[in-house]
Each structure stands twice: as C-alpha cells, then as structure tokens.
Simulated assay, not measured.
Amino acid sequence: MSKKNIVSIEDRIPKLKQARKKKANQRLIFYLSIFFFLISVIVYVQSPLSHVKTINVQGNVHMNESEIIHLSQLSSDTNIWMIDFGSIKTAIKNNPIVDDVEVSRNLPWTVNIEITEHNVIGYLKDENNYFPILATGVVLNDMGQATYNGNSPMLVDFSNDEVITRMAKELNELPGSIANLISEIHWKPTEDNENNIFIYMNDGYMVDGTIRNFSERMKVYPSIVSQLEPDAEGIIHIGVGVYFESFEPNASDENDLEEIPEESLE
C-alpha cells in the first residue's frame, strides 16, 4: 500500500473534534430553541396577550348582542385557551328565543358566537302593544313594541297559553307563502268549540276555521280562492265542510267549493 493513502491518527483527530463540536452546537441550538419556545408559550398563556379581545355575534335578530355576550360571561379577562364552550352554549340556550348556538375561537384572541333563533310566527296584540310569539308558543312579553310591522300574523283575543302554543305550532307548520297571506287571527271560542278562530286575509277574504289541523286545512286555501270570482267578497269556511259564504245580497248563502281533496281537510 502506498504511503500517500495512509492518514495518520494525528491528522484525523482535529477533524473528528470539529465534527463533534458542530453536532454539539446543533444539539444545543435545538434544545435552546425548544426552551425559548416553551417559555414564549408560557408567557403568552399567562399574559394579557392570550385574553379575549374580540367577540363576534352573528345570527341574532331579536336578542341584543350585549345580552348574548352577558350570558356567555366572556370578557377581556377571559383566557382564550380556558374557554368552556359547553357552559357558554348552555347559558345562551337558556334564553327561550335561542334554538341553537355554536361557539368557536379564532386565534389569537377572537371568539365567534353563532345564534339560531326560533321563528317568530306572529304577534300577540295586547291593548296598544304587540308581543312576538315564537314557534314554541312562548310570548316575548319583555319585547313588546308599539307598532306592528305586518311581517307575521297578528293574534287577537288569545288569552290562553295552551291555545297560543297550539296556534303557534300550526302556524309554524304552515307554508310561508300562505302564512304571509294572513293578516289577523281572532280567537272566537264557543261552548261547543274552544278552537274556533276567525281569520282576516291580506287578499280581502275572511276565513272561518279551527285551530285543530289548521295548517293542513289552510294548505288548500290557494285552490279555494282560485275557484272564486276575482271580485267576490265573503267568508271561506274550512271547519266542517268547505264552502264560500258571499256578502252579495243576490248570491246564495252557501256556495259549495269543488275539487278540494277531502283527505287534505281531515
């Protein structure tokens, strides 16, 4: 073997020392990086930098944003990593207006609250105030308003909570296209029928009906109206049987309506 290919141990030692030193430095840098990263995380978590600074509330129509934030108990002192999402959802859902709620965080310091409210299916008229009625039948007595916006039917003379709940359930199941045609619903209980109601429609007709199966019976309202003369005025009866009672003096008292599916009126 040639002497030129022989490397003495003395020549190799400096290179080995240099390689070991380089690896040791790399290892030290790695550990120091982890150390300072952990320190930074601890400082961030323990400092106001991790506190909630922004609360975004969406989906609320009848609830005030300030009320939702108050129920959530979130504040600028709340650590964004210590948020109890379950407790916040439970607290907000205790409000009868709320149907569902979703809570999420958006780092570094934002919390999002998405509200889904129950449908407002009508307004209860009480003297000079109008109170929203939810699909659940709950009347928002603390949200009375002096004016009626006309977006939902007005319920008049409804003084029984159970009756209001049943009426609300029927209205909630009614297609929006038909519910929007209803102006007022008056509760007219009799000795024989406590469910008797009288309805004023936005298209000029009046309807005599009953709360029981009201949503099913009213689904045929467009078919009933289509059989009447455009200038006809009177009362459409959808209780026991279906007929039109005209206001015209020369018209017959009762005009039977045809082509209305009987199964839709059961």
Rank of each mutant, 00 (worst) to 15 (best):
P48H: 08
P48T: 09
P48D: 12
L49M: 10
L49C: 09
L49W: 10
L49N: 07
S50T: 11
H51E: 12
H51A: 15
H51M: 12
V52Q: 07
T54E: 14
I55A: 06
I55R: 09
I55M: 13
I55C: 06
I55Q: 04
I55L: 06
N56P: 03
V57G: 01
Q58D: 13
Q58S: 15
Q58R: 13
G59Y: 01
G59N: 10
G59R: 03
G59V: 01
G59A: 11
N60Q: 10
N60T: 02
N60Y: 03
N60K: 07
H62W: 13
H62V: 06
H62D: 02
M63S: 02
N64W: 09
N64I: 09
E65Q: 15
S66I: 13
S66N: 15
S66P: 07
E67Y: 05
E67V: 05
E67P: 01
I68W: 04
I68H: 01
I69W: 05
I69T: 06
I69H: 07
I69K: 10
H70Y: 14
H70C: 08
H70S: 15
L71C: 05
L71A: 11
S72R: 00
S72M: 05
Q73H: 12
Q73G: 13
L74T: 02
L74M: 03
L74G: 02
S76E: 15
S76W: 08
D77L: 13
T78W: 02
T78G: 08
T78H: 04
N79I: 03
N79G: 11
N79D: 09
N79K: 08
I80G: 01
I80W: 06
W81G: 09
W81E: 10
M82Q: 15
M82H: 14
I83H: 02
D84I: 00
F85N: 06
G86Y: 07
G86R: 11
G86P: 05
G86N: 13
S87Q: 14
S87R: 12
S87H: 12
S87L: 08
I88E: 03
I88Y: 06
I88M: 03
K89T: 06
K89V: 02
K89C: 09
T90L: 14
A91P: 10
A91Q: 10
A91R: 07
I92D: 01
K93H: 05
K93I: 11
K93V: 04
N95D: 07
N95H: 13
N95A: 00
N95E: 06
P96C: 00
P96G: 02
P96K: 04
I97Q: 05
I97K: 02
V98N: 01
V98K: 00
V98I: 10
V98S: 01
D99Y: 09
D100N: 13
D100M: 08
V101F: 01
V101N: 02
V101Q: 00
V101T: 04
V101D: 01
V101Y: 03
